[in-house]
C-alpha cells in the first residue's frame, strides 16, 4: 500500500504524458497542456461521454479520453487524420441536428462548438438539416433559453445539480427527441430559483443559456476564438476567466 507519488507515463501521439493514479486520459493530457477536442467534458465535473469528440485510439482501439483511465505504457493516438475526420463528422452531425445559424447567434466567436468546427476545418455541415422547432423560453427576467442550439452536453444539468444544488435542468425524451427540460411544474425557467450567480448560468458551451440584454457586446476580432483557436486554450476552464 504505497502512498508514494507515482509518476507513471503513457504516450500520446508519441509524447510522454505523466499521470497520477485515477486520472483519465484527457485529465492527464490537459495537465501536460496537450489539447484533445471535447465539448461535453469539463474538468470541474464528472465526465458525461455524450459528445464523443474526445475519442482517441488506445492501443489501436477507439475509446473516449474523458472516461478512459490512464494506465502505464498505453499508446494513445489523438491528432491523426482518421480521428479528426471522425470528429469533423460528429461536429457536422451536431450542426444539422440543431439550428446553428451562427450569423445571428450572440455566442458566435465565443462558442466551443463553432470553434471546434473551425479547428477541424469544417467547411460545411454536409448532411441534410433537421430544422428543429423547439420553443424558446424567455420567461426568466434575466436569462433566455434557445433550445434549438442545445447539443445535450448536460453541463448545465451537472452544474445545477452538483454545484448549485438546485437541479434546475434535466435531459428528457429518447433518441432524436431527447431535449433539455426545466424542472418546474410549468416547465418554465422563471418558475425555478435559477439566477446569474449559478454555475449553471455560465457553463453552456454553445448559445442556449444566454443572459438577456447582453448580446453582441464584444467587438469582432476580440471574441474568445477570434484571438486563438480553441486548441490553444487546451483546458475549458481557461475560457471561464473571460466571464466577468
Amino acid at each position: 500500500m504505497s502512498k508514494t507519488f507515482t509518476l507513471d507515463t503513457f504516450t500520446l501521439d508519441n509524447k510522454v504524458i505523466p499521470f497520477e493514479d485515477g486520472q483519465t486520459i484527457i485529465q492527464a493530457a490537459q495537465a501536460a497542456k496537450v489539447y484533445i477536442p471535447h465539448l461535453c467534458y469539463h474538468p470541474d465535473f464528472k465526465p458525461h461521454g455524450s459528445c464523443k469528440l474526445c475519442t482517441v485510439k488506445v492501443n489501436g482501439r477507439q475509446t473516449a479520453a474523458c472516461t478512459m483511465l490512464a494506465a502505464a505504457g498505453m499508446v494513445v493516438e489523438s491528432e491523426t487524420d482518421e480521428l479528426n475526420a471522425e470528429r469533423r463528422t460528429l461536429t457536422q452531425m451536431l450542426f444539422v441536428e440543431g439550428n446553428h445559424f451562427c450569423p445571428s447567434c450572440e455566442k458566435s466567436g465565443d462558442c466551443q462548438l463553432q470553434a471546434t468546427a473551425y479547428d477541424l476545418g469544417m467547411m460545411t455541415a454536409h448532411f441534410d438539416h433537421f430544422f428543429p422547432n423547439r420553443p424558446l423560453d424567455a420567461s426568466h427576467p434575466d436569462f433566455i433559453l434557445d433550445l434549438n442550439r442545445c447539443i445535450l452536453c448536460s453541463l448545465c444539468v451537472r452544474a445545477s445539480r452538483d454545484v448549485d444544488g438546485k437541479n434546475v435542468f434535466a435531459l428528457a425524451g429518447r433518441g432524436i427527441k431527447t431535449h433539455l427540460i426545466v424542472n418546474a411544474k410549468s416547465g418554465k425557467l422563471a418558475d425555478t430559483d435559477f439566477n446569474a450567480q449559478d454555475k449553471a448560468a455560465h457553463v453552456c458551451p454553445v448559445g442556449v443559456i444566454l443572459p438577456k440584454r447582453k448580446g453582441f457586446v464584444v467587438p469582432i476580432g476580440e471574441r474568445t476564438f477570434d484571438k486563438l483557436p480553441i486548441s490553444e486554450y487546451v483546458d475549458t476552464r481557461l475560457l471561464d476567466s473571460d466571464e466577468k
Binding site: F95, V96, H100, F101, P103, T124, A125, H129, F131
Partner: peptide, 18 residues
C-alpha cells in the same frame, strides 16, 4: 461552389422553416 451561409445551410432565411 456554395458561397456563404445561405447556400450552405439555408442561412438566416431558413429561420422561417418552423
Amino acid at each position: 461552389v456554395a458561397v456563404g451561409a445561405c447556400a450552405i445551410n439555408g442561412g438566416l432565411p431558413a429561420l422561417r422553416n418552423p
